[in-house]
């Protein structure tokens, strides 16, 4: 945590600016240092696989629609549909969709390779979820940019044979 700011020595303008900066950081600080009980924490395997797949790209949120149940009764069998908003032309298409899980024993669930011949960037499958966690989808665009989407799924009975 940064040192607490001594309000008495700040002007009114500085005080407001400092407050805004602290408010902007708050969600990240809360996530990094003060996880609520039962909040999923990404595994080291997830961090490694994510770093390997994302490379030097800085993934941007948006354009990905992920359809997953809010609560999965059976973690062995969770239907998932991924659709990415893309014209899928030779000039602009989705090259690959990567599916990751933050707390499965094997974080990298699947990779789907696409090209303009597919016309729409949409895939459907069924995945395993060992417990309540986040499902992370990375979509690789033809210009090298990366898109990201994160979906929390509550799991009642875990999968993956654990």
């Amino acid at each position: 945590m940064p040192d607490p700011i001594d309000i008495s020595i700040l002007s009114r303008r500085e005080f407001i600016a400092a407050g805004a900066a602290a408010a902007a950081l708050a969600p990240f600080v809360a996530r990094a240092e003060d996880p609520a009980p039962g909040t999923p924490a990404p595994s080291q395997k997830f961090k490694d696989d994510f770093a390997r797949i994302a490379g030097s790209a800085n993934p941007i949120e948006g354009k990905i629609m992920v359809d997953l149940p809010e609560t999965a009764e059976n973690g062995n069998f969770v239907p998932i549909t991924i659709a990415v908003d893309s014209p899928m032309t030779d000039a602009d298409y989705i090259k690959a969709i990567h599916l990751l899980s933050t707390e499965n024993p094997a974080a990298h669930v699947a990779t789907f390779h696409l090209s303009p011949v597919n016309a729409v960037a949409r895939v459907q499958s069924r995945m395993r979820l060992a417990k309540t966690q986040d499902v992370v989808v990375l979509a690789e665009q033809s210009n090298g940019e990366m898109l990201i989407s994160t979906t929390r799924v509550k799991v009642v009975i875990g999968g993956c044979g654990i």
Binding site: S101, V109, A110, F112, L114, S115, V117, A119, R122, S125
Partner: peptide, 24 residues
């Protein structure tokens, strides 16, 4: 080749996969 995928153990038993193609 029109579509390719790699699966890990996180794909369910009896793997189901659906994708699209524009008919040439």
């Amino acid at each position: 080749e029109i579509f390719r995928a790699e699966f890990g153990p996180g794909i369910s038993a009896n793997p189901y996969l659906a994708f699209h193609m524009r008919v040439p």
